[in-house]
């Protein structure tokens, strides 16, 4: 797979990121280098190997339906770049 500016533009849109023309160029190069690195795996035949999703073979790791509050309202909002007493504030997003 080859990354071009169009792919970067599309990914940037999905992640709601903005690039100027120069950064987009750098991004294309960086991403292609990453893909080339991972492409080394193509040399190995994995057709008989199950994809590895989980780090162990446990199943049914559940918890009881119990409420445990771990942080306060103030702590929740503490790291937000923009907030008021009640809410997180973000640039206006309207779906119309």
């Amino acid at each position: 797979m080859q990354i071009d500016k169009e792919t970067v533009r599309k990914l940037a849109h999905l992640a709601r990121l903005e690039f100027d023309e120069n950064s987009a160029e750098t991004m294309v190069n960086d991403m292609n280098r990453m893909l080339d690195f991972v492409a080394k795996l193509d040399a190995i035949d994995v057709s008989q190997v199950e994809p590895l999703i989980y780090m162990n073979e446990d199943v049914n790791v559940w918890r009881k339906d119990e409420v445990i509050n771990t942080i306060t309202h103030e702590e929740a909002l503490k790291n937000a770049p923009k907030k008021d007493t009640d809410f997180f504030r973000v640039p206006k997003v309207i779906e119309k």
Partner: peptide, 15 residues
């Protein structure tokens, strides 16, 4: 939940 009508500049988010 996002609220878009309560403020002129920002959307307010309640998680």
């Amino acid at each position: 939940k996002s609220m878009h009508d309560q403020d002129i500049y920002d959307s307010l988010v309640d998680l």
